[in-house]
């Protein structure tokens, strides 16, 4: 554990809590992509299967359980409790265009051809692109509420901080995982355009509105 990873995890946790609280407090999931949240739930489910096979640390187990629970709670809020507020007409990204390449890539580029390892790899590749339906929704409606943009900023910062963690681990522990690094860089790059808008608009008190 180093400071970059800890900050990354905190940022990830913050993002998930911001989203849950936003939906709960406003009693609405308007502007939130249910598809992205489904992809994140799939990501955590396939990645954290090792919860039942091997123990890493109390911290590790605790965070995994929180991420899983929060993710399923979010799905429940969007698709069950506040279903009437779900903006289905704007959540039109075709996720099969993500699932197909992610599945093929995980079968081809993995560390070991075993079920648990392939599911881990699948989750890493899927996480990298899971935010696309959400970003697509923001670009389609041309705007995002500021609380939604805080969520996206925290979520994007998480993988960015993980990159610093990987650089640190490479030098300090001679540890590196090319699959995680490749997918993590892709994931962070996907947020770049959003980061630019967040810093130039939201932080200056303006609404996140895309140029027409």
């Amino acid at each position: 554990m180093n400071i970059f990873r800890l900050l990354g995890d905190v940022s990830h946790l913050l993002a998930i809590i911001i989203l849950l609280l936003k939906i709960w407090k406003t009693r609405s999931c308007a502007g939130i992509s249910g598809k992205s949240q489904l992809l994140f739930a799939l990501t955590y489910t396939t990645r954290y299967l090792d919860l039942v096979t091997n123990f890493v640390s109390v911290y590790n187990t605790f965070m995994k359980v929180v991420f899983l629970a929060a993710s399923y709670a979010t799905i429940w809020l969007i698709y069950m409790k506040f279903r009437a507020t779900y903006d289905q007409n704007h959540d039109t990204f075709r996720i099969e265009f993500l699932l197909l390449p992610v599945t093929i890539l995980s079968l081809v580029a993995n560390h070991e051809f075993t079920l648990i390892e392939i599911l881990w790899t699948w989750s890493i590749y899927l996480e990298a692109v899971a935010i696309l339906p959400q970003l697509f929704m923001v670009s389609k409606t041309g705007e995002a509420e500021s609380i939604t943009s805080h969520y996206l900023f925290a979520l994007g910062s998480y993988r960015g901080l993980y990159i610093l963690n990987w650089i640190y681990r490479y030098y300090m522990e001679s540890y590196y995982d090319l699959i995680a690094i490749f997918a993590g860089i892709l994931q962070t790059v996907l947020y770049c355009d959003f980061f630019y808008l967040y810093i130039t608009k939201v932080l200056r008190g303006q609404r996140l509105q895309l140029p027409a």
Binding site: N54, E117, W120, D177
Partner: peptide, 10 residues
């Protein structure tokens, strides 16, 4: 690279 399943990150 990784011999068995031992990913320690989230």
């Amino acid at each position: 690279i990784l011999q068995s399943f031992k990913h320690d990150e989230l």
